[in-house]
Simulated scan of single mutants.
Amino acid sequence: MKQNKNSLEIEEVIIEGYGCQVPVLKLTPPESRGSVVVAHNYGGSKEEMLGLAFRIAKTGFTTGVIDLRGHGENSCKMDGKILSDLETAITYFKQFGKVTAVGHSLGGRLSLISDADYAIGISPALAKTFGPKTQGMIRVLRDYRVNGSVTDLFTTLGKIPLIEFDPENVLIIRGSRDVPEIIAECDKLTSAGYEVVEIDDALHVDIYTLEPTFEAVTKKLQKWY
């Protein structure tokens, strides 16, 4: 509900997708220059990403933060069609102008290969394989929050294509203390000429909550739009 002419309007929206209803929190500024869709990590939810979405919306973007299948209020089990949930939201938000997809970890990988006009991957899960230590950490810390399992996660990642990104339309952000496999993949992108921003002292689990990350995301959005 709008409080005054300078406040954000926040509303719950359900978008009909491919076999799933995609729950969205939509943040609308008084004046909008375009749109952004925010996607969470494995075991995450739209509520966890709401702080990032709020900071983006404050800079003048109609912003939607979603629950991917298997997560939060999305009632579908996690499976290889998870990208379609993000694409469903992107299609919906095109009515508000060009769309940037912003995602963390799993959401970052999905964002980078989506049909959005621009993409920002925060600690994107781009590795083809993850070692036993990383898999064990995910199993202990994240599995209980998902309608699925770590086995479903890696099966899903195997079904999500890795493609070439347009360096002009992509930003990669990673933490200096990120997951080793993610650091390695981001370093490859740096060598290939992509813009990769490192956030000092950031961990994989907190990078999307930090002020330097907010600043990197909003600075890039201002440039693109």
Rank of each mutant, 00 (worst) to 15 (best):
E48L: 05
G44W: 01
A101V: 13
T134F: 15
D166P: 08
R142A: 11
D152C: 00
V37P: 14
E12T: 15
T88N: 10
I56P: 11
I183S: 03
T209C: 04
F96C: 07
G72I: 05
G193E: 09
C20A: 14
L8Y: 08
G34E: 04
E48H: 02
A125C: 01
K94H: 03
I82N: 08
G121I: 03
I122P: 11
S7C: 01
K159W: 08
V36T: 12
P212T: 08
G158P: 09
N147F: 04
D143E: 15
F54G: 09
L189C: 05
D152F: 04
S191R: 15
D166Q: 09
E198I: 13
K219F: 10
V37D: 14
L8A: 11
I163T: 04
F93S: 15
E73F: 11
Y194D: 04
G158K: 08
D187A: 08
E47T: 11
A89V: 10
D187F: 05
G131D: 10
F61L: 14
F54T: 06
Y194V: 04
P30I: 13
G175Y: 12
I120V: 10
T218A: 02
T134H: 04
V217M: 06
I82S: 02
D115V: 09
G34K: 00
S114P: 04
L203C: 01
T59K: 13
L203P: 01
I160K: 00
R142K: 02
K188G: 02
T218C: 00
E215F: 04
K77C: 11
G44A: 02
K26C: 01
L52Y: 03
A127S: 13
D85W: 07
S176V: 14
P29K: 00
K220V: 10
Y144P: 07
R177A: 15
T59P: 07
K2Y: 00
H204F: 04
I122K: 00
E9W: 08
L153P: 06
A125R: 13
F93M: 07
V36M: 13
D152R: 01
A184F: 11
E73L: 03
T209Q: 14
Y144D: 12
N147W: 09
K58Y: 08
G107F: 13
L27V: 10
V205K: 05
T91G: 13
I66S: 12
S105Y: 06
I90L: 05
I66Y: 06
G64Q: 06
V205H: 02
I14F: 10
R177P: 06
V13N: 14
G175T: 06
N41Y: 10
P180W: 06
T62S: 14
K128W: 08
Q222A: 00
I56D: 07
L162D: 08
I182S: 00
F96T: 06
L27Y: 08
I82H: 03
V146Q: 09
V13S: 09
V24E: 02
F214D: 04
S84F: 12
E195K: 15
I14D: 12
T190H: 14
D152A: 03
Q21C: 03
R174K: 12
S105W: 04
L112F: 08
L110C: 12
F154K: 15
K46C: 09
